[in-house]
Design a protein around this nucleic acid. Structure first.
Lengths: 144, 144
DNA sequence: CAAATCTCAGCTACACTGACATGA
DNA sequence: CTCATGTCAGTGAAGCTGAGATTT
């Protein structure tokens, strides 16, 4: 009954999602989705919209519209590619980087507290999670 | 850079969400959200809509509309409470239970494979996850 | 002409808040 | 009257597909 890991993880994910969104919204003024979006962008450096879509696992139109919103708030910046008139290069702004840094700090500190309460070793859990994520990516690729 | 657990978990959650939804949609014909909804309902037994909303962490209207949809597909059933004319009792149907069982089996089997690939002990990870979920609930309650 | 990249239009799932009806 | 429960109306954030436009 309770011993389904898929269900358990599902519920945990749901609650983390909610909690993270709440935290980010009130303290940094951004949604969790957008925060992850910016984090991936920062991690990728300057890339084209399509590359960003692939990195995020989103469709091209989804990225396109999201970027318009993020640009409105000065979190990102797009410029035409000098060597390819169709491509647009996306870069995170200083304000965007700041949001990423702030958000990460915020979430991490709350997460650390959570780990202490749960009596779980953060380093250990992080490693397991990293392996899982890697495995999932590998699995999805193989299945396609 | 990569060493943020919050970010790592976020990405993992996102990918699991996608993968689970894909699996359930094609094999069982239901969204991941609805699957979780039904799972909680089955776990709760027969409850009022409001109780269900609390258990799920949703607003009352959200539950109300979701139930209408689920009833259309014969996954759930509602009846007026005999001792309280305003309350409506919600029960999962045989078809709903079947979907929950099928979905759980499907997700669990895929998860087990994932654990093997990632070389993570499922039992161990389950325990850590359970503790985390418990801690998160406790933490949220305290903060309110 | 074909392929890649981006945008536009329209749609869907699903959540929320605020206002309202109704029963205890 | 007031509280609790459920529904209605309207809205928002965020994703998708399919159909163009534009550039290589």
């Amino acid at each position: 009954m309770d011993n389904s890991l898929a269900y358990l993880l599902g519920k945990l994910m749901f609650e983390i999602d909610r909690a993270a969104d709440q935290l980010l919204q009130t303290d940094v003024g951004i949604s969790y989705r957008r925060f992850l979006f910016l984090t991936v962008l920062q991690h990728s450096g300057t890339v084209t919209q399509h590359e960003l879509a692939v990195a995020l696992g989103y469709s091209d139109p989804a990225v396109s519209t999201m970027l318009v919103e993020l640009a409105k708030d000065d979190y990102i910046q797009t410029t035409k590619s000098p060597e390819h008139g169709r491509k647009r290069l996306v870069t995170i702004t200083a304000k965007g980087s700041e949001v990423v840094a702030k958000g990460r700090q915020l979430l991490d500190s709350h997460f650390d507290q959570l780990m202490v309460i749960a009596d779980v070793d953060a380093q250990h859990y992080r490693e397991l999670t990293e392996r899982l994520q890697q495995a999932l990516i590998t699995k999805l690729k193989k299945e396609k």
